[in-house]
Write a protein that binds this DNA or RNA. Sequence first.
DNA 1: AAAAAACGAGAGCACTGCTCTTGACGACTG
DNA 2: CAGTCGTCAAGAGCAGTGCTCTCGTTTTTT
Lengths: 231, 231
Amino acid sequence: MTASRTARERVRAELTREIADIARRQLATEGAGGLSLRAVAREMGMVSSAVYRYFPSRDDLLTTLIIDGYNALGEAVEQADAACPDDDYAGRWLAACHAVRTWALAHPHEYALLYGSPVPGYQAPQDTVAARVRDVAVLGRIVSQAQAAGAVDPPALAPAPPAPLREDAERVRELMPGVPDDVVFRCLAAWTGLYGWVSFELFGQFTNTIEDRHTAFDHAMRVMGGAIGLR
Amino acid sequence: MTASRTARERVRAELTREIADIARRQLATEGAGGLSLRAVAREMGMVSSAVYRYFPSRDDLLTTLIIDGYNALGEAVEQADAACPDDDYAGRWLAACHAVRTWALAHPHEYALLYGSPVPGYQAPQDTVAARVRDVAVLGRIVSQAQAAGAVDPPALAPAPPAPLREDAERVRELMPGVPDDVVFRCLAAWTGLYGWVSFELFGQFTNTIEDRHTAFDHAMRVMGGAIGLR
DNA sequence: AAAAAACGAGAGCACTGCTCTTGACGACTG
DNA sequence: CAGTCGTCAAGAGCAGTGCTCTCGTTTTTT
């Protein structure tokens, strides 16, 4: 009973996964806007309307791709962090940065879907919010542990964050307990620097300028890690 | 003769401009992917094929919008810089940052066109490269002048940039003569941090996290200016 | 005034997302 | 076991897209 019902549900789940896989492949080659439900259906040997049994709309397909992407990226960052010695906080930060860049270079269109401009008619549902904290949570954990170990020694760069920012810092601190406001905002700046760099590299802003991109990225991330104060 | 020829060319130029304006308005409301040549034609009371007399393809229309956007942003940054006292280098950097953010908030879809993920089938031609240096040229000028005035005092953040990066630094230095390699890469990091922050804010990565965005941005840019070493 | 170039309009092609209906097959129940 | 009910693939169809081609008309050039 449950078995037979599961039999059907299982083929359904499999087809759903297959559709998502083909869509991801299409996304990888054509880009976000080139993702066509009809093309997916063609490649599956189905008629277009049949796909709608599995994904009510193109946006729902996009949503699963986005969530999967956040999870894949988050997992890559988590693994890179876990491969480092626990107390090498600067090294862990650097490894996490490289993991983000490596994943982005390997999945450029997927990265664009996550961190590029929003797809035209698409409005990201709340489901995607939960998945996207995984990567930044890693950064938060690194800094939080470094702080606890007394391995954060931020150089003087600017006046302390003004009072109105205390609430915002408090919210961010949920991901990095024990970290003072000043360092929290340094992390935010480094975080945006990381993704800004990767986006610039991926979206072509570095053409004819930065050629040795791996080395330049590595150095830039060391600078940002230093700005946080990681030893 | 020239006058009569100019008569036709003038109406052509005017129509071309009008098409671009309508497209820009559509871009502002619908976003990049929602830009439709047919809709532009409808709004102009033309038939769609007539628009192709003025823009051979949708991509050409996009290209002019992009170039115009780069110029508009560059001009905004230039003006913000010019409004500051020449020797207040940190203030000029901050003003330039705020100009970028303000323009981006006022023209979100246009900003997305410039700095977001590339539009699906669209390949940016070389024409767009020339226009996009205007904003970064301002930053380069600020730092270059600060350096000449001895107003750059970079705090120790990381080891010096490794040797392979000298060529890249040389290329970037064309926009900021006299600035040492170390500072060049700090500028690059700050530059990506600036656009990374604006992109995050615009593309929704700060929702439910950073609320006082103006203050947070201001503080983050002060941190980055401090990381460059601007006094 | 005649030839040439530019123009707007229209029809048409191939494509898209999406809806609705139809017919068939499978699974659960009386 | 037979009947019902839900699920499914298929097809037609709608409205929209970018883009091409042709056909008269107008404007410029010769």
